[in-house]
């Protein structure tokens, strides 16, 4: 059936759609991949260990925390615990995106979850919002370039770390917050968006100053999610059921 080829959700087209969606993510993450490689070597990692970490963990913030603690000669189990703490928010991503990819095969799902970093999650949620369902082809198209570039950047950063320009002058230290803000804005059509954003912003800043990083991420996120859970059903149905 040749008409099938032109279908909107044909795998090649889905994969190309994913590639297109990955462009801004790859650009925003690039400086951090290079910076990670350079800093990791400075903190005593070998080039192999840099590549291994980027390829197996694939979570920028936790990798930065990991090498920082490693450089301070912190006990290994504490480094592992810190990586876990920084990445704990992925439990929420998993539960959220798991609903959208439940129709995939088991191996496909495991691959999908392995790649579920911040930007991958955000792009998947955006795609789910505009297209209803997420295909494996689109997901790989959007996540694989980021993954491959991330690993390659760690490697290049480790080899040529001293050539990485001053991040401050080029503004690259602030590119990720800008990118994440753009993602926050892209979800503004969802119900209770503004109350959730305000709640998470205020609570995360308070937690950042009291409890400290990285816990402000989980604490702020849970506050926003709890607010949405508390107010949503009653308002949507027009009356409280329970």
């Amino acid at each position: 059936m040749s008409v099938e080829i032109a279908r909107e959700d044909a795998p090649p087209r889905e994969f190309m759609d994913g590639l297109r969606d990955s462009v801004p993510v790859v650009v925003a993450a690039m400086p951090f991949g290079l910076l990670f490689g350079a800093l990791a070597v400075e903190n005593g990692f070998t080039t192999f260990e840099v590549v291994l970490m980027s390829a197996t963990i694939f979570a920028g913030a936790s990798q930065m925390v990991g090498i920082d603690l490693f450089g301070q000669k912190v006990a290994p189990w504490l480094i592992v615990l810190s990586i876990f703490a920084v990445n704990f928010r992925h439990v929420l991503y998993s539960a959220t995106t798991g609903r959208r990819i439940a129709h995939w095969g088991p191996v496909q799902r495991l691959m999908g979850f392995f790649l579920l970093a911040d930007p991958v999650f955000a792009e998947a949620e955006r795609r789910g919002e505009t297209h209803g369902k997420i295909t494996f082809g689109w997901y790989m198209g959007s996540a694989l370039p980021l993954y491959l570039c991330w690993v390659a950047e760690g490697w290049v950063g480790a080899l040529f770390g001293n050539l990485v320009p001053d991040p401050q002058a080029l503004g690259i230290d602030f590119l990720l917050p800008i990118y994440f803000l753009g993602l926050v804005m892209s979800f503004r059509k969802r119900s209770f968006w503004l109350p959730v954003v305000l709640m998470s912003a205020v609570v995360s800043v308070i937690a950042y100053r009291t409890v400290g990083s990285p816990w402000h991420v989980s604490i702020g996120a849970i506050a926003g999610v709890a607010l949405a859970a508390a107010v949503a059903p009653g308002t949507r149905a027009g009356k409280e059921k329970s």
Binding site: E125, L183, W193, S200, V202, S204, V205, A232
Partner: peptide, 24 residues
């Protein structure tokens, strides 16, 4: 439904916490 509503708020909630302290 409350869990559903909470999960729908996850992207905005988590991503906000990655911006807010940097903005402050």
């Amino acid at each position: 439904p409350r869990v559903e509503a909470g999960l729908n708020a996850v992207p905005a909630a988590v991503l906000t916490t990655l911006v807010a302290p940097a903005a402050m």
